[in-house]
Design a protein around this nucleic acid. Structure first.
Lengths: 340, 340
DNA sequence: CAAGTTTCCCAAACCGCTTTGAGAACCAAA
DNA sequence: TTTGGTTCTCAAAGCGGTTTGGGAAACTTG
């Protein structure tokens, strides 16, 4: 059932039917109603590609995952995209996912832009010297960055959480509690957000005149196993830290396991703060003891990023949005004064 | 830069250029080469929608997530789709994701089929009385089910792992080790795979004449917290089980936490077997003790499902593929004879 | 009632590609 | 030279929508 047939059925022209269906004012209310009814009755669905070709709008936005896949390994991805897909569906947009394959990542963006496959893209997990933004500017493809670039904050749209502030707050809480040796289990520090977290951590240490000790730090994939191994390594040191700040719930899950194994009581022998992205399958409040966290829902971020991108597509001349989300520090049971 | 302009640049007709680019035999080698060079030099990219409209092929396959979202909450999703997206990209297909929105799930399939948005879809996590398959048959949209339907195995393409066999094997290992009270932490049993797992478990119990005790079972979302809570509940019973079979690594992570808290030594006081989907962030070998698992990579399943679907799209008249994957039982340190 | 507005509708052009059906140019065989 | 077969190329017709530029009918005005 295509438009032509539908028009014939109705005894109207294609134009009128198309306009009736798309809410143009040139068609009478009675006609519009009749068209809508017959269309629904006959199960007419406009062909997506024909419409896109005619309007030049893809009604889709794209997510390209780097070929090294480290982003996609992370379960955060799932929640972030879920949040976005929801909003996009609400606005009649499709979500296009591109991952892997033999095609070079940059050329995927090229194809997306020049082939009109999508109206915009979301750039996730920007890293140091990220080439994507320059390319997208050149391609004039609307985009928004989830996170921020190295040191630039202007000239592109972004939404980020205040990672620096969050980790500063968390570290400060610990130093205020008297901790002087504080470890950091971080994500891969080629990613900007991980860098920001370390900066926040180091800033708080500096403010108290505490030494910067690389042996107390880890940077790498945020898996349970890494959390376990590194926490164990760090907690077995001669002058072991009395507190640990950890970049994800999975890392922390491993870290808690290590602490248990070393018979360190969490919140007493060792204080723990984790960053909680609000993943639905791993709940900071469900742990024992409940976990002190810096927390910010990555799903909400996904939704908001999608919304902003849609606005950007709607009016390309508008202001480039910048949103920096505050991150709450929620004090629960895993932090306490340093044992004397 | 579109085809017409490119053709003008070359002094050829659109037809010839199109054929040259798409490898049709009617065009000479020298011409083809020249066309390819100029196209590359001018950065020509065919318009995706125009091509789709002309060929009638979307070069995309779709994933629709149920509005209740339970599937998407699960981080398995991420790995499954990642595996698929990779293969799809390799074959020049896009991956379309639809989740949430106000549009009814069934109507999304309708739109996909009748609007030609995708060439096929993957049906995930089929549940009891799943209406999707009937709809897709009616729509004549190629599809493949990851999993199986209630009791039907014919008339549709599917790839499934042998959940029943796996959990039977696992339970049998435990009964052979002398365990007589064995608990089960399962996923939501409206999902067929969870049903199959329970059947495997119950079958092994029956074979040993062991009683079926609903108090030793849990069925629900596979979160860490549920694993913890339910394991704790079950392990605090008067006649507590000496072994637990668990449907996911997240559940097991919670269950291990509960065991630690109750001061039960895993592999000795309590045996544990988990199903391992091979998620990259939670490794059964990285745990202490290492975990006995039934294991099957969900990422590989995602890839293979995509491959099969592509074949199905290629030749719609072909046999409907059925693949039942064997699941290995890998015995590691978390299982042992029942304490006497 | 004539002129001017609205309201409603249409034929045809267009979006950018693929594909059909055919024609021109060239060569070898008869 | 004619015939037949390759090889290379093209104009034009789709694919299924949207949009332009009018035009006819109905309804207000003066």
């Amino acid at each position: 059932m295509n438009l032509k047939e539908l028009a014939k059925h109705l005894g109207l022209s294609q134009t009128t039917v198309s306009r009736a269906l798309n809410g143009y004012p040139e068609v009478g209310e009675a006609t519009r109603k009749r068209v809508a009814e017959v269309a629904a009755h006959l199960g007419y669905r406009p062909n997506a590609h024909a419409r896109r070709l005619a309007t030049g709008r893809a009604h889709a936005i794209g997510y390209v995952f780097p070929t090294d896949r480290t982003v996609m390994i992370d379960p955060l991805f799932s929640d972030f995209v879920a949040g976005a897909a929801d909003i996009l569906a609400l606005h009649g947009f499709e979500t296009l996912l591109h991952a892997g394959g033999q095609e070079d990542e940059m050329s995927v963006y090229r194809r997306f832009a020049e082939g009109g496959a999508v109206d915009g893209v979301v750039v996730q997990a920007p890293h140091v010297d990220d080439p994507r933004v320059a390319l997208l500017n050149e391609l004039k493809l609307p985009y928004i960055v989830h996170g921020r670039l190295d040191s630039v904050e202007d000239g592109y749209a972004w939404l980020d959480i205040d990672n620096l502030g969050a980790f500063h707050k968390a570290t400060k809480l610990l130093t205020d509690l008297g901790h002087r040796r504080i470890g950091l289990l971080n994500g891969p520090e080629k990613l900007i957000y991980a860098l920001h977290r370390r900066e926040g951590y180091e800033k708080a240490l500096r403010e108290k005149g505490l030494p910067h000790n690389p042996a107390l730090m880890f940077s790498g994939l945020m898996t349970e196993e890494n959390g376990y191994r590194e926490a164990k390594r760090i907690l077995q040191m001669k002058d072991r830290p009395t507190a640990l700040i950890v970049s994800s719930m999975l890392l922390i899950s491993g870290a808690m396991r290590a602490a248990h194994e070393l018979r360190l009581e969490i919140g007493k022998d060792i204080s723990l703060i984790g960053h909680d992205d609000g993943l639905p399958f791993l709940n900071a409040e469900g742990l024992v003891p409940t976990l002190t966290t810096t927390s910010s829902s990555i799903r909400n971020a996904g939704s908001r990023v999608a919304e902003l991108l849609l606005e950007l597509i709607e009016k390309p001349q508008g202001e480039l949005p910048h949103e920096l989300w505050n991150v709450d520090l929620i004090v629960r049971g895993s932090t306490g004064p340093v044992a004397s």
